[in-house]
Amino acid sequence: MNLDFRSEARRTRRMSSTAHDGRTGVMSYTFKLGRVMVALFILAIWISASASGMLPGPVEVITYVMSMDPKEVCPQVLRTLYNSVTGFSLSFLISMVLGLLSHKYSFVRGFSEALSEIFNSTSALVWSLVLVATLGVLSPLPPILVVAAVTLPHVLTATISALSSADPSLLEAVRSIGGKPSDEFFEVVLPSSVPLLASASRVGLGTALRISVVAEAFGSSGGVGYMIIRSYNLADASGVLAWSTILVLLVLGLDQLILKPMERRARRWLE
């Protein structure tokens, strides 16, 4: 009787596992199909626009990209990456300092939230024009500072929320065994906030790349954004789309190859 019961239980678990694997396989297939459909939809719009003479076609732009000198492309891409990563690192550092202080002092939390609201209400264009007028077109600082200013409210808000999301029962457990406030922070608050901080970093760094291009277009002597606006001023439509394509591939590559795996690893680390 017991043997029959255990056999039936094992058979039920196998059937459940098979059904779950089947559902997961179908969901994975439909998910990938949805991503492919988006790419095909964008490509169809591009081909339609090029057929009417509004834009150069995909083949023409790809040919243009293939003909570009790597010695010209690589320095511009690296400069944009430098501006983006440096500006984002600055905003992340400021966010961490204000987030840590906000966790302890309500005054700093009020200050941080007000600062975030003001910076969030100011567009990248305004920051670009003000900083270029202040520091000059030839200064390397405007793109970096624009990225820092635009990403700061998002990263700061996420940091404060992450540091406030610790499980109260875990905090109480630390206190019950005589733990200090520093023990609460380093043993509970900071580890539990890692996944949220990783997600915020992924979104923030992707935003930084896009914002850096805007800042370079208005106040820089190099970078992908500078090359886009330079091609536009020369009425080189293929050049504009070629550099735009390079930017899209750069953002997608950074997100899929570096940022997304880092976010996934941070979530597994907490588990």
Rank of each mutant, 00 (worst) to 15 (best):
F88A: 09
S121G: 03
K180L: 13
S169D: 11
I228R: 15
A242F: 02
G219F: 07
G57T: 04
S67E: 00
Y64T: 14
H20K: 07
F41H: 10
R10T: 08
A133D: 08
E172D: 06
V174C: 13
P191C: 04
S16C: 11
V248S: 06
E172T: 08
V38G: 01
R79D: 02
L209G: 15
I42V: 02
A149Q: 00
K32G: 04
N2W: 09
F186D: 06
T80R: 03
E263Q: 07
M227I: 01
R35E: 14
S161I: 00
A148D: 07
S17I: 10
T30G: 09
S16I: 12
V137Q: 01
W269P: 01
V189Q: 09
E117F: 03
Y232V: 03
T122P: 08
R210C: 04
V251F: 02
P191V: 04
G34C: 04
F119K: 00
T151E: 05
R14Y: 00
M96D: 13
G223N: 11
T159K: 02
L138R: 11
E113C: 13
S231H: 00
Y64I: 10
L209K: 05
L101K: 15
L100D: 02
S199R: 12
W243P: 03
D69Q: 15
V251D: 06
R202N: 15
S67M: 07
I94Q: 08
A9K: 05
H20Y: 03
K71A: 14
F218M: 12
V251C: 06
Q76D: 14
R109I: 10
L125A: 05
S164P: 06
A49N: 04
S139T: 11
E187N: 14
G219K: 02
I45A: 12
W127K: 02
R202M: 02
N120H: 00
M262R: 03
K260T: 08
A148C: 11
G25W: 06
V150F: 05
E113R: 15
V248A: 09
D183Q: 11
V36E: 07
P142L: 05
S17A: 11
V36T: 10
I42N: 06
G22A: 13
P261M: 10
L205C: 04
S116I: 01
M37P: 03
Y105D: 01
M37L: 15
M96A: 15
N233S: 14
V147M: 11
V188T: 09
A166C: 04
A208L: 09
V213K: 13
V26T: 06
G206T: 08
